[in-house]
Amino acid sequence: MIQGLSRRARALAGLWGLERASLVAPRVDMLSRGFLSKRRRMYPFHAYPRDRFLSDWEVELRFPAINPAFVKELLGNKLAFHLFLRDFGLDGHSCGLVGLLADGAFVPTEGAADLGEALQRSRRLFLKPVSGGGGRRCRVVEDVGELPGEGLWLLEREGVPHPYASSIFPGALNTLRVLVLKDARGAFLAGAAHRFGASREVPVDNFSRGGVACGVDPERGVLGRGVTEPGLYARDVHDRHPVTGKRLEGVRVPFWEDLKELTVELTEAVPGLRYAGWDIFVSPEGPKVIEGNGDVANPNNLLQPHRPLLTCPRTVAFFRDHHVLSEGRAEALIRNLGAA
């Protein structure tokens, strides 16, 4: 009982923290239904019944318990994830690990004698901490003098985005977040969103740091409208990129079927994994995985501005089985979806 109260208290504190960080005035009509106030401006409530949307309260309260701790640790450690890809024969689907930087000392993984040779081979490398998320402290480096002298870092080959993405915003990798769930029948794609950078966040495209997020039609791989955090731009919903003016809605993502197959394969390969938010980018040769997230803080930001998550009986059943949805709410949704 005490543990349950503690979990609810943490979830309520987390939800209220997100609400306070928003640039939108609190709205009782949203908060009373478990949604952050800003969702009123972001979600297409006019096009779908409200009960089809997973609420922020349901996510904050139950999502953290879906995956076991050891899975979160594996996916949260970027070095361990690279080793996992290598051992399962999937490293060809990543940018490639060039080496580690431990308190300024270079430890190569691809045969380069030193940092100078590694940079000469790749010209530009992508630096990121072994742990942590949100794109913080990640950057492109071109010179040995730009590298930190403390901490544990990964050095990867710089990813090259497909022209469709770089034409929309040329200053970032422009990644996709793909939510894959795994039930007794196997892994399946539950939703996807495409992120694009904005000028003040080069080379990072994170939505929480000013990026643009578009929903992606899971069947056709076609972008929907773009959404930004309310208050960052003159509008919150965008047919075109708010910085470059390039068209967003209706753009087709290349290699979409390959991308879906890759994220399902990755999810199936990780023992104990029940869901993952895979960060993917599309290169000129096909999809590449950046990392997996087994402890997604709040998937609603990216996925539900385009369409609600609870439009598929299989997805509803997954969230029911992991106690994100109550039995009664799940049964009513499955019944309504079957009648639709």
Rank of each mutant, 00 (worst) to 15 (best):
Q3Y: 12
Q3M: 11
S6R: 15
R8A: 15
G14R: 11
L15Q: 04
E19I: 00
A25I: 08
P26Y: 09
M30T: 00
Y43L: 00
H46G: 13
D56I: 02
V59C: 08
R62S: 15
L79E: 07
H82V: 06
L85H: 10
L85C: 15
D87G: 05
V98F: 06
V98Q: 05
V107G: 01
E110N: 03
G111A: 04
A112F: 04
L115Q: 02
A118P: 13
R121V: 10
R121K: 09
L125F: 08
L127D: 08
K128C: 01
P129H: 07
S131A: 10
G132P: 02
G134W: 07
G135E: 07
G145L: 01
L147P: 02
P148E: 00
G149C: 00
L152A: 10
W153V: 05
L155I: 05
E156C: 12
R157G: 03
R157L: 04
R157H: 11
E158P: 05
E158T: 15
E158H: 11
G159E: 01
P170V: 08
G171N: 04
L176R: 09
R177M: 08
V178T: 09
A184F: 03
F188V: 07
A192C: 13
F196M: 12
A198D: 06
A198P: 02
N206A: 14
S208G: 13
V212C: 11
G215E: 04
V227Q: 00
P230F: 02
G231E: 09
L232H: 11
Y233I: 01
R235S: 15
R235K: 14
H238T: 03
V243K: 00
G250E: 05
V253F: 09
P254F: 01
K260H: 06
L262C: 12
T263C: 14
L266F: 05
G272K: 13
R274F: 05
S283L: 10
V289T: 14
G294P: 13
G294Q: 12
D295H: 15
N298S: 08
P299G: 03
N301W: 13
P308V: 03
C312E: 14
C312P: 00
R314F: 07
T315N: 01
F319R: 02
R320S: 05
H323V: 10
G338M: 03
G338N: 10
A340L: 09
